[in-house]
Simulated assay, not measured.
Amino acid sequence: MSDQRKRTGLGALATAGADEDFSVIDAIGGPRGVVESMLPGVVFVVLFIATNDLNLTIGVSAALAVVQVLARLVQRQSVMGAVSGLIAVGICLVWAWKSHEARNYYMLGFITNAVYAVLLGVSLAVRVPGLGLVIEFIRQLPTERFGAWFHGWMDDRDLKRAYMAITGLWLGLFVLRLAVQVPLYVTDHVAALGVTRLIMGIPFWALAIWVSYLVIATPLHRHKASAAAHAAASHEPPAPSPSAG
């Protein structure tokens, strides 16, 4: 399997094409990635509900996150995803520990969802789809001639329309998470907040990636084919001039 097919998240969408296989499971990190992403949150909410002991819950959750990284190191596997997850879980646990409130374990999620929602909303307002910027940046790093790179996909009306659509989709996802979860945080319903966070986490992310693929696969494939044909034509040698008679 190529490195491109192992890309996750928006990186997987950047390699999408109408004639290519696309796996949602691979795009969200594979079965192991899903388990590693969800397990700390599951352990936190279940253990806190069962014991109502915040310090014990924090200690066990932190130990679990560290074990996940060590397991990958021992198995000589990539640890980047696990390390980034460890950092995120660490921030959440420290926030809950310092404030002595279990509900603050979810504060980082609120902040990141709000920031993403604002950025995507602004991008839609200025008609430069944020998801398009990210996917195209992953697909082809604009190391030079930024204007040509930018207009190369922005001037493709079908592709831009698809990027606008999925940007709106992801904006809706972030706003929906906040609309449902913030009231649970304010009213201190930790158990309901934890369960809701799990449901609206990986499952919603997988659904958003799958729908995004369905929307952009065909226009992105056509754009790639058109760009390849144009590049090939620009490198063709000039036609020989007629010989003098």
Rank of each mutant, 00 (worst) to 15 (best):
M1G: 09
M1H: 05
T8Y: 04
G11F: 05
A12D: 09
A14C: 01
A16Y: 00
D19Y: 06
S23A: 05
V24Y: 06
I28Q: 00
R32G: 15
G33K: 02
G33I: 04
V34E: 06
L39T: 10
P40S: 11
G41K: 05
V42E: 10
F48V: 07
L54R: 07
N55D: 14
T57Q: 06
A63W: 00
A63P: 01
A65Q: 06
V66G: 10
V67P: 01
V67C: 11
Q68E: 14
Q75E: 09
R76P: 04
S78H: 04
V79H: 02
G81K: 02
G81P: 03
G85F: 08
V89P: 01
V89R: 02
G90A: 12
I91P: 00
W95Y: 12
W97G: 13
H100A: 13
E101V: 01
R103E: 09
N104L: 02
N104R: 00
N104G: 00
Y105C: 06
M107W: 03
L108H: 04
I111W: 07
I111G: 11
S123E: 03
V126D: 08
V128S: 07
L133S: 09
I135S: 03
I135H: 01
E136H: 09
L141R: 11
L141D: 07
P142F: 11
R145M: 10
A148L: 13
W149A: 08
F150H: 11
W153F: 05
M154C: 00
D155N: 15
D156H: 08
R157A: 15
D158F: 02
D158K: 02
L159F: 06
K160T: 11
A162P: 00
A162D: 04
A162Y: 01
M164E: 12
L171S: 13
F174G: 04
F174Q: 04
L176D: 01
R177K: 12
V180L: 15
Q181P: 04
Q181F: 05
V182D: 02
L184R: 02
Y185S: 09
V190W: 00
V190Q: 06
V195I: 15
T196Y: 08
I202G: 08
P203A: 14
P203K: 10
L207Y: 07
I216A: 14
P219Q: 10
A227G: 08
A228T: 10
A228H: 12
H230N: 08
A231R: 12
A232M: 01
E236K: 15
E236S: 15
E236Y: 11
P237E: 09
P238L: 12
A239W: 02
P240M: 14
S241K: 11
S243G: 13
G245F: 10
G245Q: 09
